[in-house]
Amino acid sequence: MGTLERGLLLLELFDADNSEMSLNQLREQAGLPKATIQRLMKTLEARKWVAYDSVTRKYRLGASVLRISYLAASHSELVRVTHPFLVRLAEETRETASLCVWTDLGPLMLDTVLTPRHFKPATNIGMILGLGTADGQVLVACGPEEAWDGYLTNPIPRHTELTVTNPDQIRERWLTVRDERVAFDRGEWNLEIPAVAVPIFDRQGQLRGSMAIAPPLERATEEAMRGHAKALKTAAAEISKRLA
């Protein structure tokens, strides 16, 4: 049995009845030497396929598994309900429209409909975005406020000269985004691709994701971006009615 096969075997041991497992439990079920399991789990942890809880001394599936799960679940309710609206937004605005959800790694692009125009931004399904993106701002600001401190514990990476990295300024912006339910990225992630995003809630008021429009810089006038924000909010309201 090769290294890859042994690693996959360990991942397959996790299920609904065994969501967390200790090293001894993994050894008993896998039938592999403890040293081998330790080495494999360290590698899986480094790549975020598993996460280790130092308090319980148990492993659980990590963010990379969640990321792949989202990609595999292209038929999920959120994508199924949202996709027709992304198509409509792309047709009406003639810009790229996308759907994101929050993961432990940050905003993950779950679906996208490209602009019919020649310029097409590099927005790939499965892409992980940053906190300074319009989607990142919306997903954090409209999520639980008690999590904000954790996001600001480590220095914010500076992607462009416009990236806001001051924690106080970021927190103030999140408050504004939460109140207005719209966020603008005017070049903090990519100078050539501004974006505007809004949150998507279900009928119970739970945050389910974010939806964005990303035009190229030359078409991202203030008037155009405000118009895109209005179109996104209208679509998000319709989507919310359809999400259980």
Rank of each mutant, 00 (worst) to 15 (best):
L152T: 01
Q204A: 08
P157H: 01
M109L: 13
M225G: 09
L78F: 13
T103Y: 09
D104R: 04
T112D: 02
D202I: 04
A72K: 15
G130V: 09
L139S: 07
A229Y: 01
S240I: 09
Q169T: 14
I213V: 12
P215K: 00
D111P: 05
L152Q: 00
V65F: 02
V101F: 12
K241E: 15
Q29Y: 11
E20F: 09
Y151H: 03
V113N: 00
T56P: 06
I156L: 06
L61M: 11
T3D: 10
R94G: 08
E28M: 08
L4R: 14
L4G: 11
G227C: 12
A134M: 09
C100P: 02
R171E: 13
L131E: 02
E12N: 03
V50C: 04
P157F: 02
W174E: 10
P194M: 01
D15A: 04
L9S: 05
L4E: 12
K34S: 14
D202K: 01
L131T: 04
Q38G: 09
Q38C: 14
R57Y: 11
F119W: 05
I125Y: 01
S19F: 14
R88K: 13
S19Y: 15
E180G: 10
D15N: 10
T3F: 10
E188F: 05
Q25V: 11
L162S: 08
E180P: 05
H228R: 03
E5L: 14
Y52M: 03
M211P: 06
L78G: 12
K48R: 07
P167D: 11
A51N: 05
L162N: 09
R27M: 06
E161H: 04
E172A: 12
L110E: 13
T176R: 13
R178P: 15
V55A: 13
T43I: 14
G126W: 09
K58G: 08
A235V: 10
P144L: 11
T36A: 13
V87T: 15
R27T: 13
L131V: 08
W189E: 10
Q204F: 04
R60S: 14
W174G: 10
L23P: 01
S74K: 15
Y59P: 01
R6S: 10
A231Y: 02
G106V: 09
R173A: 11
K42L: 15
E161P: 07
V164S: 05
E192S: 07
K233M: 08
V138W: 00
C142L: 08
G209R: 02
N24Y: 11
S54E: 13
E92F: 12
V50W: 02
P215W: 00
G126T: 10
T153V: 04
F14A: 03
R80C: 15
T43C: 09
S76D: 15
D149S: 03
L66S: 09
P121W: 00
V140G: 10
S210M: 02
M1Q: 08
T123S: 00
R67E: 13
E218W: 12
T163E: 06
P116V: 08
R6G: 04
P199L: 06
A231R: 00
E222W: 09
L11P: 01
